[in-house]
Amino acid sequence: MSWILLVEQALNGLQFGVMLFLMAAGLTLIFGVMGLINLAHGSLYMVGAFAAAAVAAATGSFVLALIASLAAAALAGVLIEATIIRRLYDRDHLDQVLATFALILIFSEGTRWAFGSFPLFLDRPEALSGTVSLPFGIEYSRYRLALIGVGLAVAAGLFWMIAKTRVGIRIRAGENDREMIAALGVDISRLYTLVFALGAALAGLAGALIGAIQSVQVGMGEPVLILAFVVIVIGGIGSVQGALVGAILVGLTDTLGGFLLPKAFALFLSPAAATSVGSSLASMSIYILMAGVLLVRPKGLFGGA
């Protein structure tokens, strides 16, 4: 049944989208509050995945592995924020790009030195293996379904935190006017460290969760980082809602494009040609989506005027 396959692909797209959101939320918050473009965000994702794989191998517990990924990524985030990133807030974007590019080189090679070039494997927890039966006879991976649930729960928690809590109010105030909230007695540098650690922890969590589907290896962070950039450009840099909408759009376009485009071209091309044209177009589809959005709204869907 083709439509069952379609629903499964749509769920895969949603799962990919919510994981992208975990990455994009941190990037967009860090940009919104501190005005920093952080290429090393993908390295924090990798740190989370490696920490999870190492702890899972030592203890066998997936929950401990997730906690380790959050802690390790947040710690790495605090460390680089306090030593390097802090000096970059007042610099122009070129300096930020280069310094964080340098950080990627250091993180990647450092990890390769510590763990070697071979990929590590992180097993899914026993309770979430196998498939689950959804209505209309759809069988779907239990783990991927759990990822959608976790992703949406984190998104809801993040929105609640930003809308309702004192920290969230300070973050929003920091986006609007840094000098003003500093004048009102908020310790701005602690707020910056906190936001950076929060973004880092979300990236690390995403790394651990995805690490159980794919392999854990050096360089795993950068493809996701670039997609997360596309997400926040589509959504509007600095907007968490925009990041959520953008992430789900990109997730669905990427997954459904790879599934539907070859089939669409098969209607009027030979099967071999349809597969090759369809799959090359599919791999470009999210960038075409991004170009389209920017043509209509140069500041993204949720960006300021």
């Binding site: 974007h93 670039i226 450009v233 090759s276 090359s280 075409i288 991004m290 170009a291 993204g300």
Partner: peptide
């Protein structure tokens, strides 16, 4: 296309276009 934007958007959109060509060459059998 990219010059419709500026600043960080420009950095990211040029990066994305670069990736678009990269993936195109990978799938160009």
């Amino acid at each position: 296309l990219s010059l419709r934007t500026s600043g960080v958007y420009f950095i990211m959109i040029t990066l994305a276009f670069g990736q678009m060509f990269f993936y195109f060459t990978i799938s160009w059998s």
